[in-house]
């Protein structure tokens, strides 16, 4: 093995990390702007990749322009390290950069994710890259993207408040599930990508850097560390995360973490942790193996780590 490796020439058919120097420089310039203007959607070129647009090319390009030989990479898809999309992206990035991989959120330096943020609290110096299918939070109220651009310029988000109001009138609660619109640094409204409401508060004053990249829509935006991220909510009807307090993971018994619901033939349901890397560590610990389990965003009683950020639920009164 080692002799063959010594004889083989370095691969020269591709640039390091697949993208050519021009493409990387362009994306890096945009990324710096995105960090400097938290929440503002910076347009970028979005190059062709050997993966179709809509399969995580935005996140992939961001990761490829960040990755290096010393990187420890974690790729997740809906919380799972082993789903097809995550496995293929991980293999591609490793082949093109020689980086290390892990399933442990604490050991990773870059975490590319489709629609979840890990349960364990990320630290300073880590980068979370979120894949974004639709970066425009105003799409539902304004289909013209130029008009949306003007609305962002004017911080004109009145129609979003109207949408929330109508939801309260009809359903007595905010019905938006994933991609809950959130205000970054008090200025720009973002779609936090289709992460569940459970994960949205994790962006608020987080220690890590979050890069959100939409390859098909060619926009990149960012939430720097220690930046205010507030889900849109009326002051008297607070934003709520998913209520899963009666759900427990069937393998570890863990509660107050985001769960997958597995419907059974008899009409009941079983539940499993959505974050497989975290579940793996819990199981290893129960077997007596030495693992480091980090502090989680939600503790075992369901309390969020920023005191007072999540408020108790309020149901609007009938006919109010």
């Amino acid at each position: 093995m080692s002799r063959l490796a010594a004889l083989a020439k370095p691969q020269t058919g591709y640039s390091y990390a697949f993208m050519d120097a021009f493409a990387k420089r362009e994306l890096r310039r945009r990324m710096l702007k995105a960090v400097a203007i938290p929440g503002y959607q910076v347009p970028y070129a979005s190059r062709e990749l050997p993966i179709a647009r809509g399969w995580g090319t935005g996140g992939l390009q961001a990761t490829l322009s960040l990755v290096g030989p010393e990187t420890v990479l974690k790729v997740i898809d809906q919380g799972a390290d082993d789903s097809v999309n995550a496995a293929n992206l991980r293999r591609f990035i490793t082949r093109m950069s020689g980086c290390q991989t892990t399933t442990d959120a604490l050991q990773a330096t870059i975490i590319q994710s489709r629609h979840r943020i890990p349960e364990e609290i990320l630290r300073e110096g880590q980068i979370l890259v979120l894949q974004v299918p639709d970066p425009e939070p105003l799409r539902a109220v304004q289909s013209d993207s130029s008009a949306c651009h003007h609305m962002h310029a004017d911080a004109d988000y009145g129609q979003m408040w109207l949408v929330l109001y109508e939801q309260l009138v009809r359903y007595k609660r905010y019905i938006q599930g994933a991609s809950y619109p959130s205000l970054v640094n008090g200025r720009y409204l973002i779609s936090p990508s289709p992460i569940p409401r459970w994960d949205t508060p994790k962006l608020h004053r987080a220690a890590h850097l979050t890069i959100l990249s939409a390859g098909r829509e060619k926009r990149i935006y960012a939430v720097p560390p220690y930046t205010d991220v507030r889900p849109l909510e009326f002051s008297d009807i607070p934003f709520q995360v998913e209520d899963q307090r009666t759900w427990a993971d069937e393998r570890t018994g863990a509660r107050y973490k985001f769960m997958n619901e597995l419907p059974q033939a008899d009409g009941t349901a079983r539940y499993e942790l959505s974050d497989t890397g975290y579940a793996e560590k819990l199981i290893a610990k129960q077997r007596g193996q030495a693992v480091t389990i980090g502090r989680t965003y939600y503790d075992d009683e369901g309390n969020f780590y920023h005191d007072g950020y999540l408020k108790p639920p309020v149901i609007p009164e009938q006919g109010g």
Binding site: P10, T12, G13, Y16, F18, P69, R95, M96
Partner: peptide, 8 residues
């Protein structure tokens, strides 16, 4: 499998 060269 050898990854592309990480040039200086």
């Amino acid at each position: 499998m050898f990854e592309p060269l990480y040039t200086p």
